[in-house]
Design a protein around this nucleic acid. Structure first.
Length: 722
DNA sequence: AGCACGCCGACT
DNA sequence: GTCGGCGTGCTC
């Protein structure tokens, strides 16, 4: 018996598996997905590894193989399905095997805090000196695998393991069962024809047992959630489990509640902010099959759901599904890989589908289900205000005359207002008027934002310094703040409407736990008339008396140097507009310097189709997705020279490997934000015509890049190239 | 990660 | 000549 083992998956430096001989006494314990201790390298040091495959004697020269000397886990910590998924992820994102496996290994397993070490027999064994002391201690009472004692005596404990005296096992769990609430309520408002059709498509795909993408394109309030719930019910009744992905757990409490109440099974939530014990419980419930539904953000796609039958991705266009840090996976793509492995359907739900997904839906690659009619709701009226014109006509304020008069009306009627600006702080730029000096972050090539607290802050690395009002370069007192963030909006609104009660919700006011919920509840109880905020107020909120939404500056996203900027603008405007008048008639005012831009015009008319038609033309002309597959090769180092040398290496490799592929190379060049957290960044953007060629070239470069002074990050299908 | 191997300059 | 610098590559 031979076990294929991935070594050191935590530090991810070894990018292949190794064959080990399984000694006879371990044959029964060895299983794919369990961790083992093995000797590794010339010095034979003891390392942890994960069994990814078990095979019978083949042609391998067994004399060359080392032997596994102990099996750590009683039950596999990773399923064979999850290992397959890790291999797919490694191939697609050109990751090292260890990096990919780390994604499917539950975090608490790495922490080892649910494991304990105990003695195998209850007899005192004949041992010498310190070993005896340690053994006696463990015999008396099992120790936590993560304890200080275990760490301090690692070597000796391992040698006790080698003697076969200790075992490694799951700690008995404290009973933390949450009460099963039996609040099963049936839907009132029955399914509409459109909903029924969508449900049938999902059921059929599930019954057929094939991998298929189903795009559920439904406007806000068209009842997507109801379709999800009915589809989940169907799948659960057939004994299979479901993963429901949501962009952000804190903003979807209503959905979680209704799923919990409506489904006759244990539903677990799976995300990084849970306590370690909560996560262990969720993990065990899924692993045992007790829980058939898991809800969570990006990381939930790796949950150990047993016999997976369906994956649903709600708000599939949300950027939070794409990881911004390496490994830069996209949970939607991972969902598709996992569905493919299991031969099951994926439902992608959105009111503003990602351009690629809609393109594939109308070209027949995906199935398309459309929900057009809104349940008990009307669309808000949208006004686009040309801020150039406002300026020409003498209005120098941040607010247009229309917005001010509409706010006034709302305050008089006692109805609420939402003001949206995609920028926190007071002013994003501070400039000396005498010498032109711009305050920059010491660690990043980013201008510092002035905050009302009297500090200048970097929104990339959180560096902050006290604001003195005196130019550090020339000593002048004529330093001025330019542009506005949410803090300034709040201040200026107070000047116009002295009696209005205002709440602000952005990253700065929501650092405390539960702060988001608190602010939203206060607004819901009508303790404030106006809510000012960033992105986070755009999603899923529902306030009956909110009838006016103001977008202070629609251009902040539009002007980003990114091919998705128009799509993001359309999505965000549509989303934030959807907050107005969900029960009463609502109004939306969009302030912009580009009133004719198609993304803004289409959003104001609630017209996805016309936005898509314009956007897809542009994508085709410029050779962007879905007409190309993009990889961003980024090389990063604290030392500018090293980063430069690294990217030159990548360029040489690219020239060599992309010869036979249909590829266009852009760069190398400095990344748009050259320095972040004291790391210099160079990048090369490559467009491929064929996905397979992209994967092939990216993997070859990963294998051949060996310049240790600068790290190479390969971003497949990037969402931002800053 | 470690460790060995090997190709080059420095130097008893 | 050979000692050791570190760049490169391997570890079942």
């Amino acid at each position: 018996m031979i076990a294929e083992v991935c070594i050191n998956y935590q530090d991810a430096n070894v990018d292949k598996t190794f064959d080990y001989l399984v000694p006879e006494h371990l044959e029964e314990l060895v299983e794919v997905g369990k961790r083992v201790y093995v000797n590794f390298g010339v010095s034979n040091r003891v390392v942890e590894g994960l069994i990814v495959n078990v095979k019978e004697d083949t042609n391998i020269e067994k004399e060359k193989l080392k032997r596994i000397f102990s099996v750590i886990d009683k039950i596999p910590v990773v399923s064979e399905e999850q290992i397959k998924l890790a291999f797919s992820i490694r191939d697609y994102y050109a990751l090292k095997l260890g990096q990919a496996l780390e994604l499917v290994i539950p975090p608490f397993i790495s922490n080892k805090d649910i494991y304990q070490i105990s003695a195998k027999t209850d007899q005192e064994i004949d041992l010498e000196g310190e070993l005896k002391e340690i053994y006696k201690k463990i015999l008396k009472r099992p120790i936590s695998a993560n304890s200080k004692f275990a760490k301090e005596n690692k070597e000796k404990i391992i040698s006790l393991f080698l003697k076969g005296l200790l075992k490694y096992e799951l700690k008995p769990l404290k009973s933390l069962e949450d009460k099963k609430e039996n609040m099963l309520t049936e839907p009132q408002y029955g399914l509409t024809d459109e909903q029924n059709r969508a449900l049938d498509v999902i059921k059929t795909a599930f019954d057929e047992g094939v991998y298929k993408n189903i795009l559920l394109f439904g406007v806000t309030g068209s009842g997507k959630t109801e379709v999800y719930i009915q589809a989940m019910k169907y799948v659960i009744e057939k004994g299979k489990s479901v993963i429901l992905m949501v962009p952000e757990i804190s903003l979807t409490p209503q959905m979680i509640e209704s799923v919990k109440n409506r489904l006759n099974t244990t539903v677990v939530v799976y995300h990084s902010k849970m306590s370690s014990l909560q996560r262990q419980m969720a993990w065990l419930k899924l692993k045992s099959g007790e829980a058939k539904v898991v809800i969570g953000p990006r990381s939930a796609i790796f949950a150990p759901a047993k016999e997976l039958g369906l994956i649903i991705v709600d708000e599939e266009h949300e950027p939070s599904y794409k990881a911004e840090k390496s490994p830069r996976i996209n949970a939607v793509e991972v969902a598709q890989m996992r569905a493919k492995i299991n031969n099951i359907p994926v439902v992608l739900g959105s009111a503003t589908p990602m351009v690629e997904h809609y393109y594939w839906a109308i070209s027949g690659k995906y199935l398309l289900c459309t929900l057009k009619s809104r349940v008990n709701m009307t669309m808000p009226e949208v006004f686009v205000v040309d801020m150039k014109k406002e300026l020409l006509e003498g209005n120098k304020s941040i607010f247009s005359r229309l917005l001010l008069s509409e706010i006034e009306k709302n305050l008089q009627k006692g109805e609420q207002v939402l003001l949206f600006l995609n920028r926190r702080g007071y002013s994003p730029v501070v400039i000396c008027r005498e010498c032109g000096y711009v305050y920059m972050c010491k660690n990043c090539s980013i201008s510092l934002t002035y905050h009302k607290s009297g500090y200048l802050k970097c929104h990339y690395c959180n560096y902050k310094e006290k604001y003195t009002g005196i130019c550090p370069k020339c000593g002048s007192k004529y330093v001025r703040q330019y542009g506005s963030g949410t803090q300034r909006i709040e201040d200026e609104i107070k000047m116009y409407f002295k009696d209005a009660k205002i709440l602000r919700m952005d990253k700065d006011t929501t650092t405390r736990k539960d702060a988001i919920e608190e602010i939203l509840n206060r607004f819901k109880r009508k303790e404030a008339d106006i809510l000012v905020g960033t992105q986070m107020i755009a999603k899923g909120l529902h306030f009956p008396d909110l009838t006016l939404v103001g977008v202070i500056n629609a251009d902040t996203i539009l002007n980003m140097p990114d091919f998705r900027s128009k799509e993001r603008t359309f999505q965000l405007l549509t989303q934030v507009a959807g907050r107005a008048g969900r029960e009463k008639q609502g109004r939306v005012i969009i302030q912009t310097f580009n009133p004719d831009d198609y993304s803004i015009v289409a959003a104001s008319k609630h017209d996805y189709e016309s936005f898509f038609r314009e956007e897809i033309k542009l994508r085709k002309a410029m050779g962007y997705p879905p007409y190309a597959y993009i990889v961003n090769f980024v090389v990063v180092s604290q030392n500018e020279k090293y980063a430069q040398r690294g990217i030159e290496n990548v360029y040489r490799l690219l020239e060599e490997y992309s010869k036979t592929a249909d590829a266009k190379i852009y760069g190398p060049s400095e990344s748009p934000i050259f320095k972040v957290e004291n790391q210099y960044r160079y990048h090369i953007l490559v467009k491929f015509k064929k996905a397979l060629q992209m994967i092939d070239v990216a993997n070859k470069i990963k294998e051949r890049y060996n310049y240790n002074n600068a790290e190479l990050i390969i971003d497949v299908n990037p969402w931002n190239t800053l």
